[in-house]
Design a protein around this nucleic acid. Structure first.
Length: 112
DNA sequence: CGATTGACGTACG
DNA sequence: TCGTACGCCAATC
């Protein structure tokens, strides 16, 4: 059986699991998949996410500091912030306010 | 086919 | 504590 794009697929899966009003990080996803240092691949996965049939809430994925690094990659950059604020997340200076409080850990999916 | 880049993160000085 | 270097792996030039 081929390897598929397991890594990418897993990334999309995890991102879709992020509940409304929560955000996660590339590193957390990468670590959850077993490649903590492959956070960049998670970012690439997001880039490819547009190629996916199902839409991926990439706006809920930020870097470890909580900065919306990928906002520029959206069709309309403001969309990312608008969506996040719509879900109750406060964005200040392209950064998530009280990020730690809104952080959603993929491991929570494991009912850990 | 080789070099560079990229939605990041950790390690080291 | 802050700044710099390196790793990760795929896609693009």
């Amino acid at each position: 059986m081929p390897k598929n794009n397991d890594f990418f697929k897993q990334v999309y899966q995890v991102v879709r699991l992020v509940p409304k009003g929560r955000v996660t990080t590339y590193g957390a996803i990468g670590k959850y998949l077993g490649s903590a240092k492959s956070a960049r691949m998670v970012g690439w996965a997001m880039n490819n996410a547009h190629s996916q049939a199902l839409k991926v809430p990439a706006h809920r994925v930020v870097n470890r500091i909580g900065i919306l690094t990928g906002k520029h990659h959206f069709s309309i950059q403001n969309t990312m912030i608008e969506l996040l604020e719509e879900e109750g997340i406060i964005i200040k200076n392209d950064q998530v306010v009280d990020f730690k409080n809104h952080f959603w850990d993929p491991y929570e999916h494991l009912n850990l």
